[in-house]
Write a protein that binds this DNA or RNA. Structure first.
Lengths: 183, 183
DNA sequence: CCAGATAAGTCAGTGTTGTTGACATATCTC
DNA sequence: GAGATATGTCAACAACACTGACTTATCTGG
């Protein structure tokens, strides 16, 4: 596996294969695992309400940025109006989100969470904050020599710490399987 | 972007912990944006082949860990056998992945990428490596005072740098909207 | 060697979340 | 008033996940 083009190739590490390409490969994989567990937590809560991830995303952004417009939300989520409308309709009909006509532009519908919506969002945020906070508290692997090595160690440390603790050993073991082939 | 953590939350619910709640909130949001753009790159390539993200995940892990069994893959992806089988069948039928009967245990089907599969995976990996490598090259906000602050800055810096460059300003602007209400 | 466990494959049905394309309505701007 | 814009809605469809049930091949322990 040849090294991918780098923005700033450092001369010193030309020959050494355990270069940035492999570090990036590891980060790609860790990002998958981290995100998998990151969305897994709230999914369990959402299921009790008959909601899914799409509902969660809307709740999150409307809660955090009260008065968001439909257009802004569409730009954030990068989904179509129809996809948004389906879940938004659920949330409005069931009293988690409410719309108010814009004051300066009466075509706009400003979105707000109701107290119920804020409460549910808080529950969802809680479990995610717990995971992220724990990942931050985790001491990074070690502050490496160069800033670059430190950044890699830091990002890997954060993502690994985002993984469900009980699964980390399995992930380490899996990734070690490949590490042997390149050292 | 790395706002000073204000350890004086006015919200009723959040106060017990030493202040990382808001930093975690930001990280939660950045993780959403980072992942959104992270999977966006390969999605465009996959569409040309009539494949989706599920195919990508299988290709990635089979390419990286040749000889993976079905059971191992199921444990990694955390999906059901049926979901895996649907995409795996596509990949096998179209010659991207092949199965070999296990030697020690003939019930197992060991998975390998064909040269074609390795080639496609390399294309997919390339665009993701590019993004991750760029995110790593990006100098972190600054090495903070405490290790903890440094870890936060580092994680935020990495995730922000994972976002499509042209969209970073919009994300900063959006998140600044909330920051104002906090500080 | 056989019974039961295990690895994998498959069928049928369902739900969430995304897509496209077309069209309707209210409102703003020039 | 004309045209752009913000939103809402209908219908159809695809990707990807789920459950539950069942089959086949193979391994393992008594």
């Amino acid at each position: 596996m040849t090294r991918a083009a780098e923005p700033v190739p450092t001369d010193a590490e030309r020959c050494a294969e355990p270069g940035p390409a492999h570090d990036s490969d590891d980060l790609i994989e860790l990002l998958f695992f981290a995100y998998r567990d990151f969305v897994g937590d709230p999914d369990r809560i959402l299921a009790e309400y008959g909601f899914g991830r799409a509902h969660h995303r809307v709740l999150h952004f409307v809660d955090r940025y009260p008065g968001l417009t439909i257009a802004e939300l569409l730009d954030i989520l990068r989904i179509t109006k129809q996809s948004l409308n389906r879940v938004l309709k659920d949330l409005i009909d069931q009293g988690y989100v409410e719309q108010r006509t814009g004051t300066s532009d009466r075509r706009q519908r400003l979105l707000f969470c109701t107290p119920t919506g804020r409460s549910l969002t808080a529950d969802l945020t809680r479990v995610q904050v717990r995971r992220v906070a724990r990942a931050i508290e985790e001491p990074a692997a070690e502050a490496g020599r160069s800033d670059r090595a430190a950044r890699i160690a830091s990002a890997q440390g954060f993502l690994l710490a985002m993984i469900e603790p009980g699964d980390r050993a399995a992930v380490r073991r899996l990734m070690a399987r490949r590490a042997g082939a390149r050292a």
